[in-house]
């Protein structure tokens, strides 16, 4: 693959009730491994995927929330969270995982990957993509 495309993954489902969140994460990692330009959006119940403090020990299933911390290593550092979705669920950015990346093109500093945006801003972000994949 020589051509780089702008991929947007739209995540709308809570993490454990269905398989969508994990499937999305796997496809995200594969796309990023092929050096595509990947952005993520978390809206609706998708914001629950990156809630901090998840502990699935008592359910006996895999807790994949630590994997979101690896996204920075995969150069996935454009992660947009819809403010309206957070508000409806009584959440703020402090309730989410702190996802960062190391800025290799600039000063190698740790920078935040997460951007809380309004619905209006999200309209523009979605409009700029070549491929939109919805989970």
């Amino acid at each position: 693959m020589s051509e780089t495309k702008k991929f947007l993954f739209v995540n709308r489902k809570a993490p454990y009730g269905t398989i969508y969140a994990w499937e999305s994460l796997e496809v995200i990692l594969i796309s990023a491994a092929f050096e595509q330009d990947v952005s993520l959006v978390f809206i609706d119940d998708g914001v629950f995927q990156i809630a901090k403090g998840q502990d699935t020990t008592e359910l006996g299933i895999k807790n994949f929330s630590p994997t979101y911390n690896a996204l920075g290593d995969y150069d996935v550092n454009k992660i947009y969270i819809e403010k309206e979705s957070l508000d409806a669920r009584g959440l703020t950015v402090d309730d989410l995982l702190k996802l960062t990346y190391e800025d290799e093109d600039d000063d190698w500093a740790e920078k935040d990957s997460i951007h809380v945006v309004s619905s209006a801003e999200l309209v523009d972000i979605m409009d700029q993509q070549d491929v939109v994949l919805s989970f």
């Binding site: 809630a51 901090k52 403090g53 998840q54 359910l59 929330s65 309730d95």
Partner: peptide, 14 residues
């Protein structure tokens, strides 16, 4: 159910 709260990172104090 407490186990489902914990899995999802929902603290009991909220």
């Amino acid at each position: 159910l407490g186990s489902d709260l914990k899995a999802r990172g929902v603290d009991e104090n909220r």
